[in-house]
């Protein structure tokens, strides 16, 4: 099937709009979640983005057809290559999400929160400001959770 581009078979290939909209919805929702401070929400966002991309592969495989078995009429079957690719991608994202889940559990075990920590550079800029005077936009209730072994005052070396 690699030699037959869907665009070449059907020069005016119309993408399935329903699938396109589902992709857009999933990726948009996933992006919104991924921008959150909580790691579990980031993780859920990544799941949604991954699923959205999986749907995108259905869009690019062109018109739906019969199952691509040997012996079927090549013109009637759906393109098997995107299916093979998306299957690989799904398996990889499953494993990665599993790892991220374990990571966020460990983060919660250690710090009692699953918030993504502050950026080390931000904390570095913030610290002199704290010692001198706080800026008007600074909210003291949002404590930093950064621990970088080279930036923290305490000895972070193992």
């Amino acid at each position: 099937m690699t030699t037959l581009a869907p665009a070449l078979i059907e020069p005016t290939l119309q993408p399935n709009m329903t699938l396109v909209l589902v992709t857009v919805g999933l990726v948009a929702a996933g992006t919104a979640l991924a921008l959150d401070r909580s790691l579990v929400r980031v993780l859920l966002g990544m799941v949604l983005i991954g699923n959205g991309i999986a749907v995108l592969y259905l869009v690019i495989s062109g018109r739906a057809g019969r199952a691509p078995f040997v012996g079927e009429d090549p013109a009637a079957i759906s393109d098997p290559l995107p299916q093979a690719m998306v299957l690989t991608a799904i398996v990889i994202s499953l494993a990665t999400i599993g790892f991220l889940l374990a990571l966020s559990y460990r983060l919660w075990q250690i710090s009692g929160t699953d918030d993504v920590p502050d950026d080390a550079e931000d904390a570095r800029i913030q610290r002199p400001a704290l010692e001198d005077q706080t800026s008007s936009t600074y909210d003291p209730s949002e404590a930093s959770t950064t621990t970088s072994d080279e930036l923290a005052h305490g000895d972070g070396s193992p």
């Binding site: 099937m1 690699t2 030699t3 037959l4 581009a5 869907p6 665009a7 070449l8 991924a34 790691l39 980031v42 990544m46 983005i49 991954g50 991309i53 995108l56 592969y57 869009v59 690019i60 290559l81 995107p82 690719m85 991608a89 990889i92 994202s93 990665t96 790892f99 991220l100 990571l103 966020s104 983060l107 993504v116 920590p117």
Partner: peptide, 26 residues
């Protein structure tokens, strides 16, 4: 955590790129 999330995002972008390439060229 930072590293995994950033890598996941770049992999997602790569997958979208591959999908676009396949749709355009087969």
């Amino acid at each position: 955590t930072t590293y995994v999330v950033v890598s996941l995002l770049s992999s997602a972008l790569f997958l979208v790129g591959i999908a676009a390439v396949y749709a355009a060229t087969g």
